[in-house]
Design a protein around this nucleic acid. Structure first.
Lengths: 129, 129
DNA sequence: CTGCATCCTGCTAGATACTG
DNA sequence: CAGTATCTAGCAGGATGCAG
């Protein structure tokens, strides 16, 4: 099963097509906070407050929200320990773990290229100023 | 050079820290449209209108905007052929090409896991309904 | 400590119309 | 064809207060 655009054929399972389920998956994964949270969970289970401190700049609301989304997607598991005070730990599931590798690749790419990108940005800005 | 949070040490170049330049790079790369546009350019130079058709759901405005950003970052080059009608071609630079691999990894991950994720979502929804 | 509810704001992105 | 400009609506996301 293929589709044709501009004379070229594309597979049916195609993130470039709007309705494709992989698009929704990419939307989540491409999310700004998801990348960082999954990465932060890479080292093992983390408490809510740990994540809040670790992922700088995230608000409590967005952390909760993103964690819920990840839980819903089956990428993160949530374990509430009913002590006083409450302790909640989040952990990557197996699927979540498998996401770690492509994400790390992206992270490494960012680290390798950020100087070049920064330079290119200032160049571009002075050139078009 | 390291920083310490919760007793653990982290490297200085750390996307999890707000000020870190790699954070800004990740913000761009993790962008919803960037992933798709760079991917669409993976097969070679593409015209503006080709991209518009290929990346379903993107508006002309967002395509222009994202392409400008990628050009500014030195990931995409723009070649305007002054004919009638005008023809503009976009192409990945070397740096842009290097981004292709981690992005494809992400894409493949999405394709591999979307069924599991979809199931997990409906499970979660019925469970919490 | 963890997390939900509410309110409020700014920015993002879509629609539309116009130009080289 | 490949943009720019403007206007607007919707919603993402921050702040705050409260509850288990």
């Amino acid at each position: 099963m293929v589709t044709t655009i501009d004379g070229a054929e594309y597979p049916a399972l195609d993130p470039y097509r709007e309705g494709c389920p992989t698009r929704r998956v990419l939307d989540r994964v491409g999310d700004r906070w998801t990348v960082l949270i999954v990465g932060a969970l890479g080292g093992g289970p983390r408490r809510f407050s740990e994540l809040l401190r670790r992922v700088e700049g995230i608000s409590q609301k967005m952390l909760t929200q993103t964690l819920r989304g990840l839980e819903r997607d089956g990428l993160v598991s949530r374990a509430a320990h009913l002590e006083v005070p409450v302790r909640v730990e989040y952990e990557l599931t197996e699927a979540g773990h498998s996401l770690l590798e492509p994400l790390r690749a992206l992270e490494n790419w960012a680290i390798e290229h950020y100087t070049g990108i920064a330079r290119s940005r200032t160049d571009y800005d002075t050139r078009t100023a």
